[in-house]
Simulated assay, not measured.
Amino acid sequence: MAVVIETDPDLLGPLSAEYSARFAALVTGALTAAAPARRAAVAADMARTLLSTAVGIKQQADTREEFRTRLATAITLLPPALERGA
C-alpha cells in the first residue's frame, strides 16, 4: 500500500487518504485507551506526534529494520508522557 501511495496515489482514489486517517485513528485509540482518564485528551496530540515521527524516520531510515528500531524507541519515549500532568 505504501509503495502505491508513493508512486501513484491517484490510482487508489480516496483510499490512500482513508488509509492514513484509519491508521491515525487506531494509534489515537490505542493511546487513549492506555491513558489515565485525566490525560486522555493528550492522546490525540501524542498520536499526531508519533505519526509525524514515523514519517520523518521513514525518510531517514535506509532499511525496514532501522525504521522499526527507531520507531520502537519513539514509542518507548512518548507514552510515559501520558502519566505526567501538564
Rank of each mutant, 00 (worst) to 15 (best):
E65H: 06
A54P: 02
A41M: 13
M46C: 02
A41F: 14
V55L: 15
A35T: 05
L50S: 00
A37C: 03
L31T: 03
R38W: 08
T49W: 15
R68H: 07
T53N: 09
R64D: 13
T49G: 13
L51D: 03
T49F: 15
T32S: 08
A41R: 15
E66W: 01
P36G: 01
R38E: 11
G29Y: 05
P36L: 08
M46H: 06
F67H: 01
P36W: 05
V42M: 15
Q59E: 14
R38S: 09
L50N: 06
A43Q: 05
T69V: 09
A34K: 03
G56P: 10
R38Y: 10
R70D: 00
R48V: 09
D45C: 13
E66I: 00
L51K: 02
E66D: 09
F67G: 02
G56T: 13
A35I: 06
G56H: 14
E65G: 05
R38Q: 11
K58Q: 12
I57S: 06
V55K: 15
R48L: 12
F67W: 00
R70M: 08
P36S: 04
V55E: 15
I57L: 13
P36I: 09
T69P: 01
T32W: 06
D45Y: 11
Q60E: 15
D45V: 09
A34P: 04
T32P: 05
F67C: 01
M46G: 06
A41P: 00
A34W: 04
A30F: 12
G29M: 09
L31F: 00
L50H: 06
A44G: 07
D62W: 13
S52N: 12
R64L: 06
G56I: 12
T49C: 15
A47G: 08
T69F: 10
A44H: 05
L31G: 09
A34L: 02
R68P: 01
A33H: 10
S52H: 06
G56E: 15
A40D: 02
A35D: 01
A43I: 00
Q60C: 10
D62L: 14
G56Q: 14
P36T: 07
A40V: 12
Q59A: 15
A33G: 10
G29V: 13
I57M: 03
D62T: 12
G56A: 12
A54K: 06
L50E: 03
A41E: 13
R39W: 02
A61I: 00
A30R: 14
G29L: 08
Q59L: 11
A61M: 01
R64A: 12
G29S: 09
L31D: 07
A33P: 01
E65I: 00
A30D: 14
E66L: 04
V55P: 03
A54N: 08
